[in-house]
Design a protein around this nucleic acid. Structure first.
Lengths: 146, 146
DNA sequence: CTTGACCTTACTATCATTAGAAGGTTTATA
DNA sequence: TATAAACCTTCTAATGATAGTAAGGTCAAG
């Protein structure tokens, strides 16, 4: 199986497979004589594991831990559960932050008549910069990307 | 007012002020004879506007539009409202995605006894990669950062 | 033997932000 | 006045996951 076939079979792009190899998330793949990477079904399974973990929002760093537990037949399921719940915590923190933004924006938009006139409480709020009732005092680094 | 004072007054770091200038979000600042940037209260107000917009999750690109409307005394408040509601839409899409992840993870974690034994439905799910009841078929590019 | 579809590496970009280095300026104090 | 601290300047690089591009090698079918 070459990288393209492995990509199709796992749902991870060839680019990302090479990237995961480069950062040590997956072991260096075998090579044909001509230098093509070769993948076994076991490695494709690992890639699917990674893909699914990404779909659940796990960072590559955490996936590393998940993979280690996956391979460890003497693991404690408590450790897996802890990682999952930590992930839930992180996601919920982000959700709450965004929900606060949504609430503020909705509130401001409700107050804006949204017609041809220039007067606008949304701009007034941004201008005032009072950071309103739902704001974070300091960036938490969690949501500042769009 | 030099850049440090403007940073304190606006809540935008000096680094970011220079960055915003470099990408054209704010006009190039005036300079002293020795090359220090100089800021007026108007410019500090603009920085506070930017800061507040970032706190509400707006991308720099959108802030550019907001600033243009802010400066335009013949604006239609409808345009501002539209931007705000688009932002709400984007945030809600992300929130729903994350909520789906949370639901899946919670469901899996509930099924995991979390003790010293290795058996774990969370790992089983990741391994199977069936993308479960709450999954997105394709990455939307909205949540894949931690 | 050519064509097209694949593979290789390496570099670039994204987005907002932070950090560092190396060097010049201003301000306050000894 | 000398000096040190605290500022400022520009430039570079890193973050995290992913996509794009370019230049070149390989493989399979026609």
């Amino acid at each position: 199986m070459n990288i393209g076939e492995a990509a199709k079979a796992s749902g991870v792009s060839a680019k990302m497979i090479r990237y995961y190899e480069s950062v040590g998330l997956i072991p260096t793949a075998g090579r044909t004589l001509s230098g093509y990477r070769v993948y076994t079904t076991t490695e494709v399974q690992m890639l699917r594991f990674i893909r699914r973990s990404r779909d659940l929002g796990f960072a590559v760093e955490k996936i590393e831990e998940l993979l280690a537990l996956w391979r460890d037949r003497t693991r404690h399921s408590a450790d897996v559960k802890r990682l999952a719940l930590e992930q839930v915590d992180g996601l919920e923190r982000k959700v709450h932050e965004m929900q606060a933004m949504i609430d503020t924006l909705r509130h401001l938009a409700d107050a804006c008549c949204g017609d041809h006139r220039p007067d606008c409480p949304i701009l007034a709020d941004l201008e005032a910069g009072h950071s309103g009732p739902t704001a974070q005092r300091r960036p938490t680094g969690l949501v500042h990307q769009s």
